[in-house]
Simulated assay, not measured.
Amino acid sequence: MSSGKHSKSVLIGVSALVIGMAVLVFMPGPQSDVSQTNSGFGSHTDSPPAPPASDRGPLKSEGGDKHSHLAEKLDAHLAEADERDWLEVLYDLMREASIEDVQALLALSDGTPEYSVGFRDEMKLAAFERWYHLDPAAALRAIAASSLSADRRESRVELYLEDWAGRAPREVLAFLQQGELAGVSPDVIYGALARGGAASGERTVFEDALGRVEEPKRRNFTLKSLARTLQRDHEILFDAWVPTLPSDDQAIAIAESAWMLVDQDPDRALARLDQLEELGADELSVTRSRVVVKWTRKDPVKAGQWVLAQNLVAEEREELVSLAFKVWLSEDDEAAMAWAEDTIEKGAMDEALMNRVVTRLQP
């Protein structure tokens, strides 16, 4: 570029792009892998979409006093609450409940036709959550034997087993040896045990449990989760564990480590990318993109400088610049455009590349 005139003409196209970008779609991070098991208690993340009101709440009883004291209390709270808050009423009712009240709510959920089917399932979930905090083993046995759908049974067993194993993995092992979760997939059980074992830093537990997960997608999900947890909470253990894995698993674990590290230590994240390159891993390209997206959100200038300095084939370099620029535009479009103009003027990026980036990002 001989002057800033041409670079400013490029930025006119970028400005138009910013105006036209109503929605920016970013590459998803690993959080999406873990949404099914890492939710906090009471968040009801495995609940189905809310059905119509006629199928959600308690139906009016035409008879006399059919309900127990707990049923009366529940009905009174529901009558005072907005329909949208009925699930919160259930969980509030169980927040400090005794085991007797837990059992009463479960009895109501199975034997009270005045409540809709969908609402009775929610009653079970609220009761099981409280029961889990009072007695994990008994609650898990009850969930496995309950009338909940298979998906809901397994999602709750998975959630609670992982949490319990994260605090007391040896207790969970002793419980599982009793074989009292018949009907629950072993992949669900051992995946949860592996993730909980990693959270607690119990290597023998999570290694053995991972080896028992057979379904490929679930095993891949579990391996990624282990890598992220160990990198975050037990880095020395992560470094000792990774070399023992098969080469394909090593690449997956290192890729997740790079994504985890880029927030607090980009240099170490980049070192992980070097490891992937040395392994000749297929994960390198996707992981590099994930790292750039996350890094740009935290430090767009350094991320952009790194991208431009990479010795990549034209298509890969263009893709990385596009990803970084797209993220930056969504965070601070003026700063992003100023960076692009300055980079072109200094010769670190040519105008043709910027034009191709703009073309890529057109809605």
Rank of each mutant, 00 (worst) to 15 (best):
Q264P: 00
M354N: 04
T222M: 01
E278T: 09
W131K: 09
L270R: 04
K326S: 13
P58I: 00
R288D: 04
L74Q: 00
A352H: 13
G347H: 07
M123R: 09
D233K: 07
G118L: 02
S109T: 01
E202M: 01
M94F: 03
L261A: 13
L11Q: 09
V293I: 15
Q250H: 05
V313E: 14
N355E: 14
D110R: 06
L261Q: 11
V34L: 01
T45D: 02
L273N: 10
D121C: 10
S285Y: 05
G280S: 09
S2D: 09
E72W: 05
A16W: 00
N38C: 06
G179E: 06
V262H: 02
S116P: 07
L226I: 15
R156E: 08
A138N: 12
F325V: 11
A168V: 12
Q264V: 12
L134W: 02
G111Q: 05
L93W: 03
D85M: 08
R272S: 10
L276T: 07
A199Q: 04
P246K: 00
R288E: 06
E83I: 04
S155F: 05
E162R: 12
P136S: 07
V10R: 11
A209D: 10
L279H: 06
A314E: 12
E345N: 09
V293W: 08
T112Q: 03
A137G: 15
S322E: 01
V89G: 02
V23D: 09
S54H: 08
A314C: 04
V313M: 11
S285G: 06
A79R: 07
F221M: 11
G63A: 14
A199Y: 04
R130I: 10
K346I: 13
L17C: 01
S9A: 14
S155C: 06
L93E: 01
S54K: 14
V25F: 11
K8A: 13
